[in-house]
Nucleic acid binder design. Structure first.
Lengths: 177, 177
DNA sequence: CAGTTATTTCAGTCAATACTGAAATAGAAA
DNA sequence: TTTCTATTTCAGTATTGACTGAAATAACTG
């Protein structure tokens, strides 16, 4: 299935960005393809559309599953697995935040806690100890904040985002009271 | 200069995480080293401490400059460049957000705008057009929100984060008024 | 059951990136 | 200017990760 020009551009770009987003090109391309096509596709259709090896598609689909970015859809009268991704950008955003948090944040939080618990911490400079504590505190705060935010309804989250820095008014009024 | 156990663990872990954060191991290790050591270091000290090639350090320092994560510090009576990174985790956080936004978000916003402006967009499914529009809208909203948030004072930002999902009360009260 | 189709695995290859060491450049100091 | 020190550049090498194709496995069909 040959893609239309805009869809092709979208898929190719998403694939390139994938690298900076922490997944490889094929994984990101497949996600983009499922997202833009908006209907379940089987592995062979994906293979043909993207022009990569069938086995590459198989492994990439597994990777997308690990990211909770696709689900397989049974189709009546068709034995082949069909995959789809959400077409709701908010759900997509939430999933990516959740997954990246667990890959990019949580392991470091673990290590920093270990560092502070370890007996060796006392032999470091006071200033270095403080920096590790501050780093941990910031990462923990961001981590639980992200967890809370992605639980909000999309409309609510959009309002929070649209409001932007104006929330500081709320912060100010709270700390005065 | 041999690192103390916790500093070593910190540097090695930061280096490994660097990969998932979009920089290579050496770059992340150098940043971690400068962060934990808390004083300006020259390239040779870094080289010796990390056990990598001098040229690797040189290139990695340049990369850290591109990320605005280090600055060079002139030291009285020493011709060699000395580098330091901020020891303020909030400033670090802000820099990383700014840089990652420009690398991971802005290029895609550009492409999505191009897609929508292009004459070819009309030949796509209505649903696909809508998804591109929604993706762009979300990314633009997040992008300007991030820009606003990183302008806040650390204390204010910390309060906003600590408050977490409670901001929705503010959102609700605003939309009622 | 055998035959057919779908999917996964994995060893090997290829491509991208990281890293090294030597040479070039730049810039003091003598 | 020559010499010495510091830094950068870059061609080559090493390492890592992505991708392929063939073979194995799994799951259905008749």
């Amino acid at each position: 299935m040959e893609l239309k020009p805009v869809a092709k551009k979208f898929v190719l770009h998403w694939g390139e960005m994938g690298t900076t987003w922490g997944v490889n090109r094929t994984v990101a391309q497949i996600h983009a393809l499922l997202f833009i096509s908006g209907h379940p596709m089987n592995a062979d259709e994906i293979t043909e559309t993207l022009g990569v090896a069938r086995s590459n598609v198989s492994m990439s689909l597994k990777e997308l599953s690990n990211w909770n970015l696709i689900r397989s859809i049974p189709l009546m009268g068709d034995r082949r697995d069909h995959y789809e991704t959400t077409t709701d950008v908010w759900e997509l955003f939430r999933t990516v935040v959740r997954e990246r948090k667990s890959r990019e944040f949580d392991p470091t939080i673990e290590v920093l806690r270990d560092c502070l618990k370890s007996g060796d911490i006392a032999s470091e400079d006071k200033a270095a100890q403080l920096r590790i504590k501050e780093t941990l505190a910031l990462m923990e705060a961001l981590s639980s904040w992200a967890s809370e935010m992605i639980r909000l309804e999309p409309e609510t989250m959009m309002k929070v985002i649209k409001m932007g820095a104006k929330v500081q008014q709320f912060v100010r009024s709270k700390s005065e009271s």
